[in-house]
Amino acid sequence: MDDIYKKIKQLRYEQGMTLKELSEKTELSVSFLSQIERGTSSLAITSLKRIADAFGVKMIHFFEEDDDFHYVMKKEHQRPFKMESSDSTFIKLSGHFPERKLEPFIVKLKPRQKDVELVRHPGEEFFYILQGALIVRVEDEEYHLNEGETIHFPSTVPHMWENPLNQETIIISITTPAIF
């Protein structure tokens, strides 16, 4: 993940863009972008998407070491990363090829970790509980899931999750659309 910060700065220099210009294009503050480029702040996927759009590149640009297509994600390339404002750890599971629709991850939730607000975004979400338990709120419904159970819902409806246990919960999460 450290390479993301370097690639953002490199793209900005290559395109002759100031931090202020990038800020205007992304609606992210100059100070936040400066922290991102120095690697002193975490970066949400939504913020990375804004930055990618501002540079006219796909998000995969920040994660891949070359432009080759690949279908396999070898274990040694499955590196954990964090997203801004989340205590969860994510591990990307998918390869890279044009027109991908799915984004599979392993997600590790800390004991008693809980989202602070409902979110909604385009696409769908699917969770499979590998270890532990998960409470998922989708609109007004609350679903209690244990190991081996799943949930699949449109992510356009307000939703959030919670690990109700005093131990780590691990899930497989598959979302659409693909974001990397």
Rank of each mutant, 00 (worst) to 15 (best):
F90L: 12
P154W: 03
P154D: 11
E65Q: 11
H70S: 15
R12M: 11
K75N: 02
F105W: 06
E65W: 05
T18G: 01
K20M: 13
G148S: 06
F90H: 12
E147V: 12
G16S: 14
H152V: 05
E21C: 00
E162A: 07
E14D: 14
E142H: 04
D68L: 14
I174V: 15
S31Y: 06
K49H: 11
I129F: 07
S86V: 03
R137P: 00
D140C: 06
E76R: 08
L102K: 00
L130E: 05
E21N: 08
I8W: 01
I60H: 06
Q167L: 13
T176N: 03
Y13K: 15
F105G: 01
K82N: 07
Y143T: 02
E37H: 08
K49P: 01
I179K: 04
H152G: 04
P164I: 03
I171Y: 02
H70D: 13
S29V: 13
K108H: 07
R38N: 14
K58Q: 03
L48H: 03
K101L: 10
E141G: 00
Q131A: 08
S88K: 14
E27S: 07
I91N: 05
P177N: 07
K114D: 10
P104I: 02
T156F: 04
I36L: 15
P158D: 09
L130R: 04
R100K: 13
S47H: 13
F63G: 04
I129M: 06
K6I: 10
F55K: 01
Y128A: 00
I135R: 09
F69Q: 07
V157N: 05
V72I: 15
F97E: 03
N163G: 13
V107M: 09
F90W: 12
E99L: 09
I45P: 00
P98M: 05
S23Y: 00
D66N: 15
G16N: 15
E14V: 04
L11W: 05
E24M: 10
T89I: 11
V57G: 00
T18H: 01
K92M: 04
H121I: 01
I151R: 12
V30R: 12
A54S: 15
I170L: 09
S173R: 03
I172D: 13
I36P: 02
S94M: 08
E142L: 05
V116E: 15
